[in-house]
Design a binder for these strands. Structure first.
Lengths: 121, 121
DNA sequence: TATTGACTTAGACTAGACTCTAAATGCTAT
DNA sequence: ATAGCATTTAGAGTCTAGTCTAAGTCAATA
């Protein structure tokens, strides 16, 4: 699969794909005889995972750490699990924060709708 | 209230408070005779709102737009409501995205825990 | 064969949101 | 009154995560 096809499939840019490869989140992707990337199914699986985690706000740094551990082999399984568990906690907290803000936002909108808005911002 | 007290109360830095004031999210905050900020209750209310919305990911740009509309008076009520409704939608989508990612993360952790991990990242 | 368009690289640039620095002034305690 | 810490300003610097540019290569088409 070409970079363009992958980019379209996952709704991201060619630049971002090359950038992820450069920082070591994916690949190195195989190139054909004339130097053009040809993404494998395994590459696609990784990209999907990375994309999903990035969209949830996991940093490139933490994902890189996870990928590096994975590359080191089975001996890092427990460490990888712990890393993911930490990110799970952070994510749960973030979702909680956002849900609280959403509730406040909804309440304020309700004040607008019922014209019970007070004099403050 | 001094900038330091406000910063502590809301767990942010003096710099951030001055920055928010510079870009027009709050204030201008009153200064005492020797030029030092003295935050009013109204300032605090604003800061709390801004802080909450920022923590949910609303951009400074959009919050500035909201504040500017507020400053223009009652004639902008409907526009403000619409702005908030749009942000509500975005926020709901973001929470959904994050919840989906969280589910995948939990599933992967479960694979680690039960040692059913497949050979992929 | 010439052009067009996709791909490649290295490296510069950008946006957003702070965060820090320097130099000046002010407040408090000794 | 002097030290030592907090505050002020303008403006520079930082960090993250891309995004863009320039210069070059390659394959397919007119």
């Amino acid at each position: 699969m070409t970079i363009k096809e992958v980019a379209e499939k996952f709704n991201m840019t060619n630049d971002t794909l090359r950038y992820y490869e450069k920082v070591g989140l994916i690949g190195p992707v195989k190139k054909n005889s004339s130097g053009i990337r040809d993404y494998s199914d395994n590459d696609l699986r990784r990209i999907e995972f990375i994309k999903c985690m990035r969209s949830a706000g996991l940093s490139i740094e933490i994902l890189k750490k996870y990928v590096d551990l994975y590359e080191k082999g089975d001996s890092t399984k427990l460490e990888r699990q712990h890393l993911l568990e930490e990110e799970q906690e952070k994510l749960e907290e973030k979702i909680k924060t956002m849900t609280d803000a959403l509730d406040k936002l909804k309440y304020k909108i309700e004040l607008y709708k019922t014209d019970k808005l007070d004099k403050y911002l």
